[in-house]
Nucleic acid binder design. Structure first.
Lengths: 165, 165
DNA sequence: GGGACATACTTTATGTTTCAACGGATAGGC
DNA sequence: GCCTATCCGTTGAAACATAAAGTATGTCCC
């Protein structure tokens, strides 16, 4: 599926709209990959992309993370983290507990089951990406990595609200 | 400072996880821009990004589009188009009517109000993107446009599901 | 202590996303 | 005419997105 939004704009070739065109291309590509990853995560692991993202954050932090920190890292809004962690807790992948020092704070941590499952998911996930980008020259991939970093940085510098990564 | 080249080389060229890293960077960048665009669309036009996408498709088609075609172009699933168009119809931006020839088909078309509003949104949208990417060299933008195209093409060639375009 | 304020998380309301399943409409085979 | 397969759109449930309001809890300052 997909003829894209970008096609619409691309007929006016003047360089003025390059940034817009790049955004539309990034958006459609990101959507395309997301949908594919979502499908496979669902089919093979009965998990969602945000869940996978959240697990990968916890995987690197043996001691767990506060929900607010999770929110920042996954770029998922605060209100949404609550439900996300709740479901993962029900599935037995995550534990949630309050801090003694500060009763406002909740820390989420991977269970052993969560750790094991995530390892399998991560391996599959990495392979999917290699497959999907198989036709792209590794040199190009490396270049994209760098230049997309520049774009991200520029965007962060020009946010209307506040920011960071 | 004795930096060994090897580290640098293996870092940029040990392509094993480069695809994964690129995907994560594309995803976070895309999320970042999406969130910003959403904020501004909401604040200044009380619209959402999918709505904007949909309007932009209709803008170029005086005669309107069938919902199925809209679904393909916006990369939004069928079930979602229904609600999207419904809300846009309530707001008076879009008209919906059934075909005489084929009573299964519904065609959506912009109203004058929708056309006017979209024009303003599109202009603002384009400016926002220029602002956000202001720190990126135009040469880099052009390169990204090309190379992201290659990525997109590669992904489309390796979808597990089925369809392509 | 008590009031003002900030922080951390939850809740609520609205919209978008996916998938699966349903019904109406059309087209083809008989 | 009639059966069946297919196409088109809608509907429903569960998950996730946002913003905004609510609830504790912690902190500061008088």
């Amino acid at each position: 599926m997909s003829v894209d939004l970008e096609v619409i704009v691309s007929d006016t070739q003047d360089g003025k709209k390059q940034e817009l065109r790049l955004w539309l291309r990034v958006l459609s590509t990101s959507k395309l990959i997301s949908q594919e990853i979502r499908r496979r995560l669902r089919r093979e692991f009965e998990a969602t992309l945000p869940q996978f993202d959240l697990l990968s954050q916890l995987y690197r932090e043996k001691d767990g993370l506060r929900l607010g920190e999770l929110s920042r890292r996954t770029m998922v809004t605060n209100g949404n983290i609550t439900g996300l962690v709740e479901r993962l807790e029900q599935d037995g992948y995550v534990l949630r507990e309050r801090l003694e020092d500060d009763r406002r704070v909740t820390v989420a941590r991977l269970t052993d089951k969560g750790r094991t499952t995530f390892t399998a998911m991560a391996a599959a996930h990495e392979q999917w990406l290699r497959d999907m980008m198989a036709d792209v020259d590794p040199i190009v991939v490396a270049g994209l990595l760098t230049h997309m970093g520049q774009v991200k940085q520029s965007v962060q510098n020009h946010l209307s609200g506040d920011d960071e990564d």
